[in-house]
Design a protein around this nucleic acid. Structure first.
Lengths: 150, 150
DNA sequence: TTTTCTGCAAACGATTTGCATACAC
DNA sequence: GTGTATGCAAATCGTTTGCAGAAAA
């Protein structure tokens, strides 16, 4: 089951670092809880919050995204479209290994679950003495839809 | 054996797209041939060329890097340090699968050869109907040296 | 009441672009 | 000659920062 974070997780992690719980930080996290599986940029989040009634400064969005990433509630990633994007850092270990399939024709980003990389990480540990904490895997190619259009 | 590109490959691929062979494009490619295994940014390339006798504008470096990537002589990548980096797109299939190990402590980027991903790509093709053309794999963690320092 | 946070606007750094000139073909 | 490429400087765009006022603890 996809299990995710609560505002209480946020509160606890903020306290542990002597940061304050603020409405802005809560609403930024909430945006991600409301948009599972999406890869939102700072501008995206800002736009979504503005469309709702929440007033928030863009700089605050940037600062919140960075903080939430440090608290490991979000994960930062780059898809090469010129801006950083974020997604909820799921707490479910079975979802740990989801990779991104990026269609170079239409730009769609979909996900793919896999656990093959556990072996690979063990291999890296053994051969290189490198301790893997996290990884990012991106496959570039052509999605089903774009293939059938040609 | 690591086999790489020649200036003749460059000439051919430029002609195929009705682009012109210029000294600037040659020297940019040459920088990468002279620095195998490095991940150079536009500023890096510009600096290296300036240190040699070659005068070249930074904008031209950017334009050349993009063109060389389109010609699949270079590969563009992001390591999250705020700028795009490039490396030679080796022609050797056995080197196709080299992943990047990024130490989050000292920032060192090393490489790791592997062919496990062939299976994974086949799996993606079959289950998702997504045709994989390329991939980028980054492992974040702590390198051997940084581990022993703690 | 003390410290951290927010919002704004200005600063920033990487990358792109417009345009006149120079060069490859 | 013709069309593409270059170099420069200005423009752009995502992101960061300084600072005064606002809010959490």
């Amino acid at each position: 089951m996809a299990q995710t974070f609560t505002m209480d997780d946020l509160r606890q992690r903020l306290q542990a670092r002597q940061h304050k719980m603020t409405p802005q930080r809560q609403t930024v996290l909430q945006v991600f809880l409301d948009h599972p599986g999406e890869h939102l940029s700072a501008e995206d989040v800002h736009g979504i919050l503005r469309q709702g009634k929440s007033e928030i400064g863009l700089a605050t969005v940037y600062r919140s995204l960075e903080l939430l990433s440090e608290l490991e509630l979000l994960q930062k990633m780059e898809f090469g479209d010129g801006c950083s994007r974020y997604e909820v850092n799921t707490t479910d270990p079975s979802e740990h290994h989801h990779h991104h399939l990026i269609c170079t024709t239409c730009g769609a980003v979909t996900e793919f679950e896999d656990d093959l990389l556990d072996d690979l990480e063990a291999d890296i540990q053994q051969k290189m003495g490198f301790h893997v904490l996290n990884h990012q895997v991106k496959f570039y190619g052509t999605c089903k839809e774009c293939q059938s259009k040609n």
